Amino acid sequence: MRVDLFDFELPNERIALRPARPRDAACMLLVRGQEGLADKTVLDLPDLLEPGDVLVFNDTRVIPAQLEGRRGEAKIGATLHKRVDLRRWQAFIRNAKRLRVGDVATFGGGVTAIAEERLEDGSFVLFFEGDEPVEVLLDRAGTMPLPPYIAGKRATDERDQKDYQTMFAKEDGAVAAPTAALHFTDRLMAKIAERGIATETLTLHVGAGTFLPVKAEDTENHKMHSEWGRIEQDVADRLNEARARGNRVIAVGTTSLRLLESATGEDKVIRPFAGDTDIFITPGYTFRAIDGLMTNFHLPKSTLFMLVSALMGRERMQEAYAHAIANEYRFYSYGDSSLLLP
């Protein structure tokens, strides 16, 4: 499909630079089949689902993956986006023309890394020197990697250390937050439990590739970034049991959705999973694992807008986004939410 079919005009002022406070006070647009659109808030979520339905969250934790440093006299920046092993990470490099294979980059706190390999996409494999775990080095040298559409408008600050982390975060490894879950609070989780809605978690370490623009003119020519994920056997079993009794599996965020779909066969059975996935979902895809999606509002011509168009229909989502823009919904990572129920 042509990528320009997924374009739309978004006024710059609709991009959220801070989250709603409290988080569960964010607006939420209900898109249910071909019914009329309904303006809700995130706190309404439990009343829009049925007892026995299951919400699936991503428990990945964002690491301080943004590094500023030097190679000799040249300034460079590194955004880690995928772990290779205990001491190696793939990284997008700013001012990459000043970095060659074999060079040593020096970052804050005396952290150093060797540029071991340059990959086809222009990123580098960095080997972090020393005996301390890389996580310790990043805590010393790194900052929270805010998305470019926020970082380009303001500096990262202490508030972002908490704001850009979900309440479920426990597995270190993401360089971008699973932002749909940023809306959840203890108050909302108590209402979900009271309603009899179940919750499960999986892990998908979101990479910086999620922010890369689609440069191809046709979706067939776009190469999707890969990310590492895991679904445990007992989680898969409970999700299959829920669907077998007629309840719905609702993915909280496109990261949860993509991992669930990666782990599910044509027989619609969700299986345990541990490994990389580069699933690219566009209109025409047949969903196997999920019955709905809670997600924020995405960029024009992005793979994520293609995903929601696959779930609900492209024209339906163009209509929903036009409604959101006209009614001053807030977009992107710190923005408002939508509940998509086919």
Rank of each mutant, 00 (worst) to 15 (best):
M1V: 08
L5N: 14
F8A: 10
N12S: 11
I15R: 02
A16E: 04
R21P: 10
P22A: 13
P22C: 11
C27M: 14
M28L: 13
V31A: 11
R32Y: 05
G33V: 02
G36Y: 10
L37G: 11
L45V: 00
L49A: 03
G52F: 04
V54R: 00
N58S: 03
T60S: 12
T60L: 04
T60N: 05
R61S: 13
P64C: 01
A65F: 02
E73F: 00
K75S: 14
A78Q: 04
T79Q: 11
T79I: 15
L80V: 01
K82Q: 15
V84M: 09
R88N: 13
R88G: 13
Q90L: 12
A91F: 05
F92G: 12
I93P: 10
I93N: 11
K97H: 14
G102I: 14
G108Y: 04
G109S: 05
V111M: 09
A115C: 04
E117D: 10
F124T: 14
L126A: 10
F128R: 05
F128S: 06
G130W: 10
G130F: 09
L137I: 01
L137T: 04
L137H: 08
D139T: 01
A141R: 02
G142P: 06
P148W: 02
A151W: 07
D160P: 03
Q161V: 12
Q161P: 08
D163G: 01
Q165T: 14
K170T: 12
D172P: 13
D172I: 01
A176V: 10
A176C: 08
T179L: 04
M189W: 07
K191P: 01
A193T: 02
R195Q: 13
R195M: 08
T199M: 08
T201G: 08
G207M: 05
G207E: 06
T210W: 02
L212A: 15
P213F: 00
V214A: 01
A216M: 07
D218W: 05
E227K: 09
W228T: 14
I231W: 12
I231F: 13
Q233L: 13
D234C: 12
V235S: 12
V235Q: 08
E241Q: 15
E241K: 15
A242G: 11
G246S: 11
A251S: 15
G253K: 05
S256T: 10
R258M: 06
L260K: 11
E266I: 13
A274Y: 11
D278H: 14
I281D: 02
G284P: 11
T286F: 08
F287T: 15
G292S: 14
L293W: 06
H298S: 12
F305I: 09
M306Y: 03
M306H: 03
L307H: 03
S309I: 08
A310F: 10
G313A: 09
M317I: 12
E319I: 01
E319D: 14
A322I: 09
I325N: 00
E328D: 14
F331T: 01
Y332D: 09
G335F: 00
L341P: 07
P342D: 01
